[in-house]
């Protein structure tokens, strides 16, 4: 699999590696997918990178590659910001080859990472018709998670037709941030758009939301989908090739 902009892959790894340390990458002719839960089975990440999004892609037979995201992250830190990246696995090999090429083709770096034997449990995630779908700038969402984490370890997300309200409370008090739905949309990327079938009010652990925001560099926008008593879906699109979707179980009143 070859990416002209290796930085896209680095952003994917940085978006995943705090939530899951290692994961099984499913490679097929259609592209690469990954699904993994965090150690407490409270959150899940689902990655899709379609083959047509790569500069070149070939997969002669389906492979499940157990990869340490922590190690992969360390190797990718050596990549130049404009490098292209090629990842390959030979048929009977127990390692993955990561090749980086500088833009002016004068520097070639090659790394080989040992593959891991992971028994990955797969969850079936049904297509859900969510009560509420919010689109907002990913930088804004990252900022809200950071600000709310000052006040408490849980964030209540309430939606109304006017907008969406994030609130948190804890020992030192409470705080809330309300975003009004954008009316005159000049720049789509900066808009707050709320499609609401019915109002929702759900509470989530802010540390997971903050971990999800590590994937924000992938996309200027983030999608938040909510339904009562249903895990939150937090989506960052990967331009022209797929998405990173995070799912987080809500916190329930005892």
């Amino acid at each position: 699999a070859r990416l002209l902009h290796g930085s896209i892959f680095a952003k994917v790894i940085e978006g995943l590696r705090e939530l899951v340390n290692e994961a099984t990458w499913e490679c097929s002719g259609n592209g690469i997918t990954l699904q993994a839960m965090d150690s407490s089975h409270v959150a899940l990440v689902s990655l899709v990178m379609r083959s047509e999004g790569f500069e070149s892609y070939r997969c002669d037979r389906n492979m499940s590659l157990g990869i340490s995201l922590v190690s992969m992250s360390k190797v990718l830190k050596t990549m130049g910001k404009d490098d292209s990246l090629t990842i390959r696995v030979n048929d009977d090999s127990d390692s993955i080859i990561i090749a980086m090429e500088s833009q002016n083709q004068d520097k070639f770096a090659d790394y080989e990472l040992r593959l891991m034997d992971l028994d990955s449990e797969h969850l079936g995630i049904p297509d859900t018709d969510y009560s509420c779908a919010i689109k907002m700038p990913s930088s804004e969402f990252s900022r809200i998670c950071r600000d709310m984490s000052i006040m408490g370890d849980s964030v209540l997300i309430c939606t109304t037709k006017e907008g969406v309200k994030f609130s948190a409370k804890g020992d030192l008090g409470q705080g809330s941030i309300r975003l009004v739905q954008t009316t005159n949309i000049e720049k789509e990327e900066e808009a707050v758009i709320i499609e609401m079938k019915e109002a929702v009010a759900l509470t989530f652990a802010v540390r997971y939301l903050s971990m999800f925001c590590k994937a924000a560099p992938l996309s200027p926008q983030v999608g938040l989908s909510l339904s009562e008593d249903t895990p939150l879906m937090c989506e960052f699109k990967i331009a022209e090739m797929g998405h990173v979707r995070f799912y987080l179980a809500p916190k329930i009143e005892d």
Binding site: H41, V42, L44, P126, T230, P231, A249, P250
Partner: peptide
């Protein structure tokens, strides 16, 4: 007090 649910009650193992 609120307790944190896991994903399993919502999504079944495929």
């Amino acid at each position: 007090k609120r307790h944190q649910n896991q994903l399993r009650p919502y999504y079944s193992s495929a």
